[in-house]
């Protein structure tokens, strides 16, 4: 849940990048960090293994300026995607206000995407949140790959978005294609869900 400080007119909201391991969640945050370096006064926090895999989360506080008279700070988190880290993944979702689901476009990752989305639904449910209600954006990542067979977007839409019907983007976290539009979309959806409290 976001925290709205009526005294300092500040909003803090938590946005989590979810998805299968190696899908590109950390790379999304790294791109955002590079791109908006001047707006992010602190270092990106990454709790990772020696093998550079996310162990607990990455964290990036991002000051997006004034919305409806409030100074809005979004806290961007990634979860560890590997199946064995479900306990820590669940902890990161605590108090989440918006989710970006980063799916891997490679054909061989098709099943992992579906399982991870199902895992998101289950873990949200432990916090009494419905995947159908939480602000959510899908990102079909790694569209830049040319030497690997990729899933057609229509197939990914059918696999992941036929019931959810949320905004989706074809993206490449490595080149930065559609990374910022994904972020803008989830921020605006999250802020819209907070609208009734930001009078």
């Amino acid at each position: 849940m976001a925290f709205v400080n009526m005294k300092t007119k500040e909003v803090q909201a938590k946005i989590v990048f979810y998805g299968p391991g190696r899908g590109g969640k950390t790379t999304n945050l790294e791109y955002i960090y590079k791109k908006f370096r001047e707006r992010i006064p602190t270092e990106m926090v990454s709790i990772k293994t020696h093998g550079d895999r996310t162990l607990f989360f990455d964290f990036l506080p991002f000051d997006i300026g004034k919305i409806m008279g409030y100074d809005v700070k979004v806290q961007l988190y990634t979860v560890p995607g590997q199946v064995k880290y479900d306990a820590t993944r669940k902890l990161v979702l605590k108090g989440v206000d918006g989710v970006v689901f980063v799916a891997d476009s490679q054909v061989e990752q098709r099943k992992k995407n579906v399982l991870s989305l199902k895992n998101l639904q289950e873990n949200l449910a432990t916090y009494k949140k419905s995947i159908f209600k939480v602000p959510l954006v899908l990102q079909y990542n790694k569209r830049d790959l040319t030497d690997m067979p990729l899933l057609p977007v229509e197939v990914m839409e059918k696999d992941l978005n036929s019931q959810l019907k949320v905004p989706s983007f074809e993206a490449s976290a490595v080149t930065g294609q559609n990374v910022v539009p994904t972020l803008k979309k989830i921020i605006s959806a999250t802020m819209a869900s907070l609208q009734n409290v930001l009078k």
Binding site: V4, K133, V134, V197
Partner: peptide
């Protein structure tokens, strides 16, 4: 009813 979406905002 097991879901509580109003809790998207602060409790």
């Amino acid at each position: 009813s097991e879901y509580d979406d109003s809790a998207t905002f602060s409790e």
